[in-house]
Design a protein around this nucleic acid. Sequence first.
DNA 1: TCAATTCCTAGTATTCCCATATGTTTAACA
DNA 2: TGTTAAACATATGGGAATACTAGGAATTGA
Lengths: 151, 151
Amino acid sequence: MKISTKTRYGLRALVDLAAHSAGEQVALIHIAKRQDLSVNYLEQVFSLLKKAGIVRSVKGAQGGYMLAKEPAKITVGDIIRSIEGEICIVDEEPPSDSVSLVLKNMQQCIWDNVWQKMTESVREVIDHITLEDLMKEYQVLHIDDNIMYYI
Amino acid sequence: MKISTKTRYGLRALVDLAAHSAGEQVALIHIAKRQDLSVNYLEQVFSLLKKAGIVRSVKGAQGGYMLAKEPAKITVGDIIRSIEGEICIVDEEPPSDSVSLVLKNMQQCIWDNVWQKMTESVREVIDHITLEDLMKEYQVLHIDDNIMYYI
DNA sequence: TCAATTCCTAGTATTCCCATATGTTTAACA
DNA sequence: TGTTAAACATATGGGAATACTAGGAATTGA
């Protein structure tokens, strides 16, 4: 019941990108330095993010990545799904016909009353947090720290 | 982001036990037959459930397992935790001091605004479904099927 | 005593995950 | 035009977790 590191890194990298981009592309090496991640690994993550239409890339020297949409239009759900695939708490095959009725009823019961509800609840959360929300929260923390520095 | 099969089996087995127990102990072999599970594997699951005080056992011939509390006092959260350990969406170490401030802020931001909220939301769901709820829902399905049979 | 059952532990196969490494292609810039 | 910086692609190793299987020890009712 864990989120993969790939997703964690991806989310960090995207908030970082949103906070540092200013409409220009940013090379992965800068994100990697700030977030203490391996460039190679980040490349794999951004390949998925690009396929999902969350970022777009500029190739060649001075190239990099930028958001493909406004941060307010990218949800955490979009990001998680683009890296982990569709949110699905359990991977139970749909009860086949060879299965007894007793078992089928049980699976149905638990699916409807537990796994389904957990999944909906998670979706409800992640589909209502945007990259803009996170970016703003991050900047608040950041500014507070700078103020501390000058006291 | 998946629930382990061990937990899925455990939940099925417990609803089955609750529905078939009638205050008496039930041998795992019966549960295993109805739910199409291996007895050996179920034993491992029930060992955890017992440790957590969810079931208690009667050893020897004609022995078996029974619920240690009323079904209304056992939540799905209890069951999941007893098998998977504490619910924790990500395993991020608390940001050590060697980490840069920029990174620490980012981790804090995402923890508070994403992982924390997801975790709370999941807990909210699983801590409010009881074994009694599931047992009743299951019996409804079961009865409906029997009615169908007689039409 | 025998059989049924919990209890305990070891072992194994597989799958997934994290990360590194290496090479190719693309485009800016001098 | 050559160099360089970057995205892009792929493969591979290693490690950890997972899902079982197997088999024996201990316990107890009949």
